[in-house]
Amino acid sequence: MNNNKPEFILGLACCAGAVVAASCPSLALAAGGPDPAAAWWVWPLAVFFVCFVLGMIAVPAGIGGGVLFVPIVSGFFPFHLDFVRGTGLLVALASALAAGPGLLRSGLADLRLGLPLTLLASAAAIVGALVGLALPVAIVETALGVTILCIAALMWRAKKSAYPGVARPDALGAALRMSGIYHDHAFARDIGWQAQRTPLGLLLFTGIGVLAGVFGLGAGWANVPVLNLVMGVPLKLSAGTSGFILSIVDSAAAWVYINKGALLAVIAVPSVIGMMLGAFIGARLLRVMKTSVIRNLVIAILLLAGVRALTKGLGWWA
């Protein structure tokens, strides 16, 4: 029992979050049907608790909260998808901003590597946000379901390479001097790195930006594999630089949602606060928990949320 205490606590928290989420509709109905004026506060409170649990899971799983937030809240809460996506971007943005300064100071995020990728991804995220807000909800919901299921498969199958060997940088990467040295505290040594396949990386980040804008997802789930497996950047530096990239890309897309009125602060603020408090606990759980347990839990949640979004979009499960 003692050895499994962190897993037990997290499992309990997940169950509590699930119970809160699952009981919300019944609470609302008990309060007088689908328009329960007296129970307006139930939903912001429920979204706060759910985000708290998601925040606890997101940090140890190495993902931003947005990828969990959007499918779960759009699937199980009454808020329109426009507001869920706007809030999803703000949640991912707040998490990235909170982590950004520390990552940049420690050298685990690299400005020189991130800036060119961020430029294309940000411009693409604006286009994605405009397209996402113009498309019919059923289409976005269906595409979201497919995307989330693909992310679950990616998390299940994707390999990681702690220190990918890059023999020679490509011409563009060399011209932009996308290389450097960072200090790995775990091994107490300096690690040299250089980027490869920069044009392909730029193209993939453009696609990632579109997805982030359309679905309101933070895109850490895609940034890290592209940086690590395609561009040959060490895993820790990939994860850190991904956080820096998100802090700009998500803000570009978030502005479109804000300016179009697709941000409801009464949902967004409890979500941000819940996610950040949960992440605070999650960062401590990271030291004691098995990452494989968290990873499997996240994949299970993504499968559930993906199926829910897909069936909702197709009109099979309203």
């Binding site: 050298g107 001097r177 290389s179 200090h183 040299g192």
Partner: peptide, 9 residues
Amino acid sequence: MNTGRGSGP
């Protein structure tokens, strides 16, 4: 490798 950059941010 010659990164052209020193260690640290």
